[in-house]
Simulated assay, not measured.
Amino acid sequence: MGNELDFYGSIRTPDVRMLYDMKEVLFDREWLGQVKNMELYYMYRDLYRSESDLETMKEHNIRYDITVIPPKMLGREYVKTAGHYHPFVPGTKLSYAEVYQVLEGKATYLLQKQEDNMITDVVVYNAEKGDCVVIPSGYGHITINATGETLKMANWVASDFSSVYEPIRDLSGAAYYLLVDGFVRNPDYSEAPAIRFMETTDYPELGIFGGKDMYDLVNDSGKLKFLTRPQDYVSIFEKVIA
């Protein structure tokens, strides 16, 4: 075995995302036809430091994950995650939220909002070690490692749903690809707005601050209620993505 993660003395093995798992969402199809399957990135889910932390997470229906994305080129495109949306919270028309923090390396986060089968907003954050990025309700997202170093990032997310991959997969990826020459629009989207580039920031209303280990929110889990009850945080989401 390889790529185990030592999380505070607990050795965890990853779920591995393979190249061919993502063949539908890649830009460089000619390159894809010339290479063998390979490991792209590693996902370590449901991490906890102690049994008491685990009980707190279960009580609040949240989980803490880590993803590791080594540097790699997918032909002319930088390595990325498959990309997904979140399902609606039962009884609402709002999808679950999420929050990421860069632990090592740098990340490019691309968020896109879909309304009535149209993309109405595309936002890109370039995040460095310690930075946090909230994925508001209504946004799908992908993560790109456009550097020569390994990206290691953590996320808090609701534990009681499965990610929705089909909308991005069925359109051959997100609205934009990041290539060596920069972002290019995905022609499978009939329309897509120009990218809005935003700076990372703190989210004091949510108790999230850059440079502060967001795992420690397990000790103040009420601050993470926005993950499971986005309907109570609509005004905050509008503010953080404005």
Rank of each mutant, 00 (worst) to 15 (best):
Y176K: 06
S172H: 14
N3Y: 15
R185E: 06
A107N: 01
T56K: 09
N219G: 15
E51C: 06
Y203A: 07
E4G: 15
N145P: 10
L19D: 01
V218R: 05
V180W: 10
E98P: 04
Y8K: 15
G140S: 10
G91I: 13
G173A: 02
D28G: 08
Y203P: 00
A82C: 13
V124W: 04
K93H: 15
R76Y: 04
D216Y: 14
P136M: 04
S52G: 08
E104A: 01
C132G: 11
A158P: 05
F88I: 08
R63L: 15
V240A: 04
K225S: 08
T228R: 11
L5I: 06
D232A: 13
E199W: 05
A82E: 06
D65P: 12
K225L: 14
Y20P: 00
M22C: 14
Y215T: 03
V240M: 12
G2K: 15
T200I: 13
E98V: 11
R49S: 04
Q101H: 12
I241E: 00
N219V: 13
P71K: 03
Q231D: 10
S221N: 10
Y85W: 03
E24R: 13
V240S: 02
G33C: 05
G207Y: 02
K223P: 02
D65E: 11
Y139A: 04
K152Y: 10
F237W: 04
S172L: 15
G9N: 07
K129Q: 14
V25Y: 01
P14I: 02
M73T: 08
E149K: 07
T147R: 07
L171M: 12
A154W: 04
L94G: 09
K36P: 06
G105Y: 07
D46F: 13
L94M: 15
N145E: 07
A192D: 00
E55K: 14
P90K: 11
V99S: 03
E205Q: 14
T13A: 09
R185L: 06
G75D: 06
Y109E: 10
Y176D: 01
